[in-house]
Amino acid sequence: MAQQVMLENKKSLMVRILPKVIKYFFVWGFFLINFGLFFWILMTAFKDNREIFASPFGFPESYSFENFLRVLTEGNMALYLWNSFLVTMITIVFCLTLSATMSYVLSRFQFKGRQFLYILFVIGITLPLQSLIFPMFFRMHELGLRDSLLGIIIVYTALNLPRSVFLLVGYMKSIPREMEESALMDGCNYWQIFMKIILPLSKPMLATTGILIFLSTWNEYVFATVLLSSDANATLPLGLANFQTAYTSQYGLVSAGIIISIIPILIVYIIFQEQVVKGMVSGAVKG
């Protein structure tokens, strides 16, 4: 009898504890994989090749920032950072301006061909955009913008337009029209309505769209490697890839490059975490 009770107790203990053990093991296990990988790269960035081969997983003998400094100066990483910053910021402003004005027209006015225009924009969301890489390349070549920041800004703006218009039209349609109607009565024109009512009310979706443009532009590699051939114009991902080709077997240096390239986006991500997560999800789900 007593034995029976003990067995029961033991079983219920197992039933209670085991799921928790599995849960924590799983959840923190994946945490460790992610964290460990980045931490390993960080530690490698403090080492030279001799140390890397002698103890690939050990802590560095000393924490000197020599690799990081070399990456920023010799490796031009400071320049790539600046290029990426310029390209991303201008693309965001450019793309938001073009898509907000278009979305205002598409969401507020009835005219012939409206639905057709809307579909022309939405089509671009499903397509694998890399399919446009050859004609984009030759178009930029024709215009003499192939190896220029302006050229890549135009390309990124075009690639981000369909999703931005789609998200903004959907959002603007949900804004009630009463305010605009009374503003119209008061003699405001459409430009004033757009600037004073539509844009301020669309702020949350403009922020989401802006973040999506930021992420896709900041990390883009394929179009950058095709269009930007000179080192002076390289964006961060492209610069990092070129840097790796130039310093192939200097693993410490390349690690420092990886870390430096990650830091800016990590800061943005940590500051705007909620918006980034929400933006990525709504972009993935609706796009």
């Binding site: 994946f30 992610n34 964290f35 900041w218 990390n219 590699y221 961060l236 790796q244 986006i265």
Partner: peptide, 19 residues
């Protein structure tokens, strides 16, 4: 946990490839 899980999503494919 959520923060760390999401870090690779915002990291560039180039950095991840090198890693």
């Amino acid at each position: 946990l959520r923060t760390i899980y999401f870090v690779p999503v915002v990291t560039s494919s180039v950095a991840i490839s090198l890693a």
